[in-house]
Nucleic acid binder design. Structure first.
Lengths: 241, 241
DNA sequence: AGAGGTTTACTTGTATACAAGTATGCAAAC
DNA sequence: GTTTGCATACTTGTATACAAGTAAACCTCT
């Protein structure tokens, strides 16, 4: 590598390194709400928790800061980011904008195999709903949306949506969605799939928009039930004289 | 910080730390093409260049890896990411999708003050075009687009577009745009502003779409003039038998 | 001359030590 | 009682040392 260049590099990351594992774990804890908004954490303590040194943990903290999941205050400490409702709404706008355009393409481009694949996913989701398996249904939900975007011919757009989704999913988890949330989401997925199967672009877009808007209920819920999870200047905003 | 929590944190980063400065510099070098796609770099050498240790440089490398501007191969080395045309097109799709929706909102929401502000920017751009100041016109271009998005009521969406733009701008710079590029961009900005001033949503969207599509010429240009800057599997793809 | 094993230099990943800064708590002075 | 100053413990930022792995170069043997 240090004499010639681009000879035969191996892009293989066969073994996940320490930092990657810690990142996945810590990110999941934040999004799921196990680490609550406002909670103070530190590099040394987290390093102890994972049984590693500060170095890989520090990398993780920086990444999570970029994702606005951690707020690092130099020489002071690090806290799990409070919920920034303005940011959540902005990310929701981004997700909605991208998914509404792609779903229209999906309704147009979807071939028989694609539609069959979606129906198979719907069946799998149905079983998860009946089993009440929230965790796996959540993963199936992601897979469903990723598939729709892939059918639209823009597979890598999912990465951007995944980033935007982090803030949104945090609100969903913290708002403790009601028990029949699974069934409602499933019904909406069914409507989207039906519209695509009939190549009804207008209906597909409408169904997707309705589907994505369910998050606003969660936002209202958390704003009322857990105001201390919100960013300070949002809950202490004095009336502007 | 370590006993009580969220008392009076200072979000102030008055002095940029070493890592932030190195990040801005290195990112600019990559996007501007001073560091060319495929070029091999290493943490110790770059640390020497900046006169710091590996630690802050390592942070920078990780961030740039997340942005897909660097490819880090463990125990082998780090290269400036080759141009991934599929990624460029995907990012272009993302930018276009977001800016086409926001420009429609801009045309609707723009008030007299907003329109006056845009006209002022147009005047400033005109002077930069006549002066042939590419660097400052480029900054003015960013400011113009950010303003349009802000008028639409989605100011933070610009951050996402800024991320997507990195790959796109790299292609623009490397394709060595022709001298009257400034004038053409300026003319397109003028058309967008006029449409907004007349609250002509349809025309505003059309003008923005035309404006954003100029990058495709740059993609074709770089694919022909500098194929060695492209990702390997894109330029060596053998005909599929 | 050519093939194969070894050495060597370089790479990133991780651990540790030190530096600089901040907030808490206590003690002393008023 | 209040305030001021300081010691202390904790925080993140940076520097350095070591570990693990890769690849080119070289040296030896055939």
């Amino acid at each position: 590598m240090y004499t010639s260049m681009q000879t035969n590099l191996k892009p293989l990351d066969r073994r996940q390194n320490t930092a990657s594992q810690a990142y996945a774990q810590l990110r999941a804890w934040i999004i799921s709400g196990e680490l609550r908004p406002g909670q103070v954490i530190s590099e040394p303590k987290m390093a102890m928790t994972f049984g590693v040194s500060r170095t890989p943990i520090r990398e993780v903290f920086k990444r999570l800061q970029d994702e606005k999941l951690l707020d690092i205050f130099p020489q002071q400490g690090t806290v799990v980011s409070p919920i920034d409702i303005a940011l959540v709404r902005s990310n929701q706008f981004i997700r909605e904008t991208l998914e509404l355009r792609t779903i229209a393409l999906t309704a147009t481009h979807a071939g028989p195999q694609d539609i069959a694949g979606l129906h198979a996913q719907i069946q799998a989701q149905k079983q998860l709903v009946e089993a009440g398996d929230h965790r796996r249904f959540f993963a199936a939900d992601d897979h469903f949306h990723e598939t729709l975007i892939s059918i639209a011919g823009q597979p890598t757009v999912w990465k951007t949506i995944e980033d935007a989704k982090a803030q949104i999913d945090r609100v969903r988890h913290l708002s403790l969605e009601d028990p029949d949330w699974l069934r409602r989401i499933f019904t909406e997925h069914l409507a989207i799939t039906d519209a695509i199967a009939h190549h009804d672009t207008t209906e597909a877009v409408a169904a997707m928009q309705a589907h994505l808007h369910t998050v606003f209920a969660a936002i209202d819920k958390i704003a009322q039930a857990h105001p201390h999870f919100l960013k300070k200047d949002q809950r202490t905003e004095a009336p502007a004289f």
